[in-house]
Amino acid sequence: MSLAAETREAVRARPFLRDALRAGLVNHSAAATWLAERAGLDGDSDAIAAALRRFREDLPAYETDPRAASVTMRSGVGVVDDASDGDGNRAGESLLLRVGDAAVVDGGDRTAILATGDVDVAALANALGRLAAADVDIAAAGVAGDALVCVVSRRDGANAVRVVEAALDAVPVDEN
């Protein structure tokens, strides 16, 4: 594999670097040195930097689109490991999210941030990235249909609502 192909592969394995290249925010020389050290690229850093510049030209520009969604907060939820009563439901509890036998249900000390409307995996990924950057721990998260759920600690609830709203206002568009 050529150094250019290895460089592209290394960038694709690091989505943050791909996004930064798309946005035009990368110091190519510094990124080349970092990739040589971290990704084990075997080549001159000037050649890696040149490959990054060429790759940048092939990438679509970084753009965002707002999403129309209503964001609400629901306190008193929990994450349980055994969410089934044999019929696939927990008696008397509303399931917000289910993955295998684990579920987000009423009755707990956490808060669910629920966004309904124009949501998808890209919106969830953006929300999770922003929540992580805001030092908000996420106990569970998912998206299906027109609903997105992020479960956080009760004390992080209000901040998480603001973060998710901001995330939905600027969801990255990936044309590639």
Rank of each mutant, 00 (worst) to 15 (best):
A91W: 14
N89C: 14
G100S: 12
V143R: 03
G40P: 06
V11G: 02
G92F: 12
D137M: 09
A170T: 05
R56V: 03
D137C: 07
Y62C: 02
L52Y: 03
V105M: 02
A83Q: 04
T116D: 09
D65M: 15
S153E: 14
L168W: 00
L17D: 03
A39D: 03
V151M: 05
L21S: 03
V11M: 04
A69E: 04
D106P: 11
A166R: 10
D174N: 14
A122S: 12
A5G: 14
A47F: 10
A133D: 14
G142M: 04
R162A: 15
V80Y: 04
D118L: 05
A61L: 14
S75D: 13
D58M: 15
G76K: 06
A5C: 12
G88F: 07
S70A: 13
A10S: 03
F55Q: 08
R154V: 12
A123S: 08
A122N: 07
L131E: 01
D137N: 13
R22T: 01
D135A: 12
A112I: 03
G117W: 04
E37M: 12
G117T: 05
A133R: 14
N89T: 14
P60T: 02
I48P: 02
C150G: 01
N89E: 15
M1Q: 08
V143D: 03
M1V: 09
T7A: 01
D106I: 11
V136N: 00
R38P: 00
A139Q: 08
T111A: 12
T7K: 00
R67H: 05
E57K: 11
V161E: 06
R54K: 14
A20C: 07
L128Y: 03
T72V: 07
W34T: 02
D65V: 15
A115D: 01
S94T: 15
A166C: 09
A167S: 10
D101S: 15
D46Y: 14
C150L: 09
L168F: 03
N176F: 15
L131M: 09
A61Y: 11
R155K: 13
L21M: 08
A122K: 05
A13L: 11
G24S: 07
V161W: 06
V80N: 01
E57T: 08
G40K: 07
N126L: 08
V171T: 02
E6A: 15
D44G: 06
G129F: 01
A140L: 08
S94P: 09
G86Y: 08
A61D: 13
R12N: 13
A125C: 10
S94A: 14
T33E: 10
R110N: 10
G76E: 04
G78W: 04
D46K: 14
R74G: 05
E6T: 10
Y62V: 01
A47H: 13
G92A: 10
D106F: 11
D137S: 14
A69H: 05
R154M: 13
R54N: 12
S2Y: 07
V152D: 05
G142A: 07
